[in-house]
Design a protein around this nucleic acid. Structure first.
Lengths: 346, 346
DNA sequence: ACCTTCGTTGACAGCGCTGTCAACTACCAT
DNA sequence: ATGGTAGTTGACAGCGCTGTCAACGAAGGT
């Protein structure tokens, strides 16, 4: 393993004490500018990188951001990681992954991971962010956390898009394209966004004076198979919808699959819309109209927000915890219109 | 943050010195069984987890496995992570991610990451494992590493499937299904597997007494768009193949997409086979026949192998480095036959 | 009985860094 | 000059653990 310069080397080279180097590295105030330059120069010369292990041990922090996830789609996970890593790299933090176990009560496992890893903050993804018991344990353990893509339980700050409005916009697009008999496939109950997306759909229908037929609203599990099942039910009866809005892309893919099997042309006989803009959506023929969330950006912003939270804590401690807790940050979504709803060919 | 028991607590509770606890934790020899039980009991009672930071700092190791990747598909990345994490969890290692930067010369960036993170070992994914200059720098820096899913440059051990044989088997399946005019889409040149998969295809054709038409062999980049381009070229001429074997699923998806646009029925007019068994493959209609690699298992095995490598090093040092270097580990692949090559409906 | 050897255990230093606190330097007001 | 204040710096302890080495007792050979 290649040698790495230590803080001692830097201190010697700059002609100061190691403590001063430490101050510069940590951007602490009260260092003369001249001294700072001297130190920075030495750091650059030696290509010095502080040791996370030593910093963590001495400072009582781990310089680790934890990312907890469960059952999320691959592309969501990877993009979120990208965003988080981008934020981590700048501040010399590391990322520690914590996939939820398949155990019945995963809360205990997750908390054990928290205890053993001691991340400085945690990023919670759906559906974990909507898991009241987990959130409670986290608060009880005084761990700083933030959730992404989820309004969660109202506890903890969150970075996300306006799910309801996005769903409303997509439904409105379908209506404006001339579809009036529109079915909807909901997400699972343990995801808070399931309800929000449905509400958006409902709002658009109501605004257009259209009624929502209850037999055209099915529950799904956000996976391909449940999309297939829901579509089969909706499309097998004598009265079939002319459009189906699935609340995520995997289920929409299931719908398209069923349509093909039944000999229905998409979008002529059936329009299909999804949500998330997974790679799947662009690779299908016809392309799937969907809602794109800026996942990478969400990850990055959430991480920066999170760092601000626990770095601020040190100074302000018991000041206005409550007010920071309730805040959430809204990022813009994007309607991606493709062939599956009658838009341009690809 | 919840309190975590320290080694001192355990030592006190078990009535031994901290060093003895350390011995038990590290599975060192020469601890009386009775003592070990005592310590283990105390560890369990207190739910003690050793601090990675302290262990790393004191022992000169980081207890971190590095995973370097670049441009890999989402599902590959996530599955590999799953496997690596599974192995890490057992031995109380952490996983540090290192996505390659988009910079022209990413080798320097990657090495900087190695210096600053100091992982005990690194897992290299394609195409990084086939990057001679990176591998050279790694060896020069005396970092232990292993590559996955790649024969690499012949340097360093690797865990993978027999790519050539897998491709041969898939091609043979096409031939046995009655297809004789078979096109092939290669992967990019910087992936070692591109050549291997092509060789397998060639071997099967040769064995069946069929000739490989050079205008039916196109180069691709392992992404959807290049699959589209290659398919358009192959299918637009007067003499079109009746089957196309794309050397990964994304490109195969591109082929199917083109087929739809041209009004060709898959598999009646055109059979399509892929490689990798991404989620895409099962969600397409018809389902895509493909080769499934046991990615999770590859990740896990590679990690365990890697750990053995650098843990063994301490004891044996300069013994038989060479022999361990050259070894690679072959895992079984699986031919997944779906509708796109005329197999059963789904 | 004696010395050796080996298995078992603990005392202690120190990994690279940060927190605490004290020292020292201006610089201003008295 | 004298004291006070704020800005700047370094000495030092210690974070939780591991490596080294020495101490001790038990087993075996003479």
């Amino acid at each position: 393993m290649a040698a790495a310069a230590t803080i001692n080397d830097v201190a010697k080279m700059a002609g100061v004490s190691i403590k001063t180097v430490s101050r510069v590295v940590n951007r602490e105030p009260n260092v003369r500018e001249k001294t700072r330059d001297l130190v920075l120069h030495a750091i650059q010369q030696l290509n010095y990188k502080p040791s996370l292990a030593a910093r963590g041990l001495a400072g009582g922090r781990s310089f680790l951001i934890g990312m907890m996830y469960d059952n999320a789609s691959d592309s969501f996970l990877v993009d979120l990681q990208r965003g988080i890593l981008r934020a981590c790299r700048e501040r010399h933090y590391g990322l520690a992954l914590c996939p939820a176990s398949r155990a019945k009560d995963h809360t205990a496992d997750l908390m054990e991971w928290v205890i053993s890893t001691q991340p400085d903050g945690i990023i919670l993804t759906p559906p974990l962010s909507d898991d009241q018991s987990l959130v409670d344990r986290l608060i009880e353990a005084k761990v700083t956390f933030i959730s992404v893509s989820s309004t969660g339980t109202g506890l903890g700050p969150s970075v996300l898009i306006d799910e309801e409005d996005a769903a409303r916009a997509m439904a409105q697009h379908l209506i404006e394209a001339g579809y009036r008999d529109i079915g909807f496939i909901r997400g699972p109950a343990d995801h808070a966004c399931s309800e929000l997306r449905y509400r958006g759909f409902e709002a658009a229908m109501k605004a257009a004076g259209l009624s929502v037929r209850s037999d055209w609203v099915k529950a799904g599990e956000f996976d391909f198979d449940s999309g297939v099942t829901a579509a089969e039910q909706m499309l097998s009866g004598p009265n079939r919808p002319t459009a189906i809005f699935a609340s995520n892309d995997d289920m929409a893919a299931g719908v398209i699959n069923v349509a093909y099997r039944m000999g229905l042309n998409v979008p002529r006989d059936l329009a299909v819309a999804g949500f998330d803009d997974t790679p799947l959506a662009q690779h299908f023929w016809p392309g799937l109209s969907t809602v794109k969330q800026p996942i990478i950006q969400i990850g990055q912003q959430a991480t920066e927000y999170l760092m601000g939270l626990f770095e601020g804590q040190a100074g302000a401690e018991s000041s206005d915890k409550k007010s920071t807790r309730e805040q959430s940050m809204l990022l813009p979504y994007e309607l991606v219109l493709r062939g599956s709803t009658g838009a341009q060919s690809q």
